[in-house]
């Protein structure tokens, strides 16, 4: 049974901007849902509507069987972790954690118990008497999560909580959030523009663009079967390569190669998408790549080059291979590992 239910939710700002278009979505209890999309796509607005920080223009939001459209944020029993953490600067860590409990009229001993438990879970017991300004970024992050956990809410909302951390810490906190969520088992929505974060954290992923959910599914489903050009370009790192092509009678003709027997009845101009990791070197390959730049990552190399008029075409090669600028590589596409999109609508056609 679904735990959080969004039905045709729409947000139109007073100035007429439509941030979210008739979005429907169901999240089941204990699920970790990630909203991912470029900045300004409406993902944060959607999250804030669940929290009650934005009014809902149209549609319904049900949480745990209760319609919460008009319910005050303080009564919704949701907890949110903000991008800048929004810790209370004048309170020490203990009071930061305890504040929400105090407002709920819980007795002192229970509060102390709960705060100490949460602090232990997040390993912040040593800092309980410190002010947030005396903590490092990672510690602040933990306190922000502690503040959410301690209230034992129906749902956790994360609004890009990792974007203020440095790269190493971000990866570490990402892991911890995932572990923590599995341990506590609270339904969570996590908003991010970072597709790696999205892929690694999500049980299910909603790729949002221009206020519309473009695709909803498990990370691997979305990676393997992007339904639109936008999703294909957004999910996967490095980005998928796109080539202009024509599809006629099941034959795809790009600038200098052809693929036959394509499983699609579409005819017309298309965009061919190939992931860098789905290319393999072979003699007499379809694509001849003139190498311009090699990024050596150790485990593998990212080779950027030119095919005829297309620049910055990327190929991911094994790390032990030595490729130099100026080399020409002959590449083939792995069996059926290509995606064809209608050029005008961006919809997948194969």
């Amino acid at each position: 049974m679904s735990f959080l239910d969004l039905k045709n939710v729409t947000k139109i700002y007073p100035n007429g901007t439509k941030a979210v278009h008739e979005t429907s979505l169901s999240i089941s209890e204990g699920e970790f849902m990630v909203f991912v999309g470029p900045s300004g796509c409406g993902k944060s607005t959607l999250l804030r509507m669940v929290a009650g920080l934005e009014d809902i223009t149209e549609g319904d939001i049900n949480l745990d069987g209760q319609l919460i459209n008009e319910v005050d944020p303080s009564e919704r029993d949701v907890a949110m972790v903000f991008q800048n953490y929004a810790l209370y600067p004048h309170m020490n860590v203990y009071n930061n954690l305890a504040y929400g409990l105090k407002n709920r009229g819980i007795d002192k001993e229970t509060i102390e118990q709960k705060v100490n438990d949460a602090a232990k879970l997040l390993q912040i017991s040593d800092f309980l008497q410190r002010k947030p300004s005396m903590l490092s970024g990672g510690q602040r992050q933990r306190v922000a999560m502690g503040r959410a956990i301690v209230r034992n809410p129906k749902i956790f909302l994360f609004d890009e909580p990792l974007s203020n951390l440095d790269a190493k810490l971000r990866i570490q906190m990402r892991l911890e959030i995932k572990k923590l969520q599995q341990k506590v088992g609270v339904t969570s929505i996590f908003v991010t523009h970072d597709q790696v974060e999205a892929m690694t954290l999500a049980d299910r992923l909603a790729v949002i663009n221009n206020g519309i959910i473009e695709q909803l599914g498990t990370p691997i489903e979305i990676y393997n079967n992007p339904e639109s050009l936008f999703v294909a370009g957004f999910i996967g790192s490095p980005q998928m390569n796109f080539l202009d092509a024509n599809l006629n009678n099941k034959t795809l003709s790009a600038e200098n190669f052809e693929i036959k027997n394509i499983d699609s009845d579409y005819n017309g101009e298309v965009t061919l998408g190939i992931r860098p990791e789905h290319l393999i070197e072979s003699e007499n390959g379809l694509i001849n790549l003139k190498v311009e730049l090699v990024e050596q990552l150790g485990s593998d190399n990212l080779v950027y080059g030119q095919i005829k008029n297309i620049k910055d075409f990327c190929y991911r090669s094994p790390g032990n291979q030595i490729i130099k600028k100026g080399d020409t590589l002959s590449l083939n596409i792995e069996e059926n590992k290509y995606y064809i999109f209608d050029k005008s609508t961006g919809k997948r056609v194969n």
Binding site: A51, P73, N103
Partner: peptide, 10 residues
Amino acid sequence: ELLESAKLDG
């Protein structure tokens, strides 16, 4: 965010 966070904290 401080106001919003406080609101969510009741």
